[in-house]
Design a protein around this nucleic acid. Structure first.
Lengths: 160, 160
DNA sequence: GTAATACTTGACTAAAATACTAGGTTTATT
DNA sequence: AATAAACCTAGTATTTTAGTCAAGTATTAC
């Protein structure tokens, strides 16, 4: 499990999508504008997210992207895994037969830690982040849409 | 908080150091050999770890590196922070005044998540990882100390 | 059907990070 | 003095990141 800016872009875009695609699909142009990410870079990321089955593209005028599942069923670990190249972090190809068994000692240690982080991020859904952060932070700053937010959360609870 | 191969190398090296520096200092050459990391790369990493006050260098023959504190007082987040360049992940320099307040929405969301990961990793010490992983995995492979392992496992079961 | 809008694909690139190489200088032990 | 080790500095090849650019294909409103 790696945590890079690429993964951050993906999570950021997915959060934006989860927040804005309640009614109609959201265009990548919109996300690119709001999050100041280049459109083509977003296209690359969303191609992977689509292959991973997390988003659905709607073509034609009025189209865009929407989440394939409810926001509560999409976790952070899957988003990051979708856009990241899977790197083989072991030098022995996972066979555990480095010289004298020792070098793989810390490989195992690290991978155990990595798994912990992964399962931790698996336990966090888009919906949870929006719930947790959004209402307190953003609605305050924007000073509006508070009722709207609350309504959306209720809808999500029903569909979950 | 980023999680890259650089951080993994640092954690790996620190785990190796924690494991092998019980009595005398450990040379970077030893770590480089065991973990198949280039010596000079290790030197770069340990220069940062030393500046962060996590390791102490002992010069001269018989010298090497040792932990500055007990392994239980060194956490993973600090190790990664020590070797990583701090990147400003906000486009507005943390001032929160991107256009119309919107772009910083997801910045905040992500940084909240990043803080969660950081505090999670802050709660994991080198000593804990060694305890948790080491005995079961490595000793088995080495084909010795089995009784010792069994005893420790029983202790873990009791404490679990 | 045409046009508008959206998504797809592939080639390319500048900049940064990664991992390493080489060569030195101190410092302390023997 | 010789040696072993940390410590320092600079450079460098490779890979990844974070895009850009160009030319498509697909869908729907009209």
């Amino acid at each position: 499990m790696r945590l890079t800016t690429k993964g951050r872009y993906a999570v950021t875009a997915m959060l934006d999508l989860a927040f804005h695609s309640q009614k109609k699909p959201v265009t990548l142009t919109d996300i690119a504008t709001r999050q100041t990410i280049s459109l083509s870079y977003l296209e690359q990321l969303f191609a992977r997210l689509r292959k991973a089955g997390m988003v659905t593209g709607v073509r034609g005028p009025g189209g865009g992207y929407k989440l394939s599942r409810a926001a509560i069923d999409i976790n952070i670990a899957d988003i990051i895994a979708a856009v990241d190249e899977p790197v083989d972090s072991t030098k022995c190809g996972g066979k555990g037969d480095c010289q004298e068994g020792q070098p793989c000692l810390t490989h195992d240690l690290w991978m155990g830690l990595s798994d912990q982080i992964r399962s931790y991020l698996k336990g966090i859904s888009l919906a949870e982040i929006l719930e947790r952060e959004h209402v307190t932070e953003v609605a305050q700053r924007q000073g509006q849409h508070v009722e709207h937010v609350v309504n959306i959360q209720k809808q999500e609870e029903l569909s979950a």
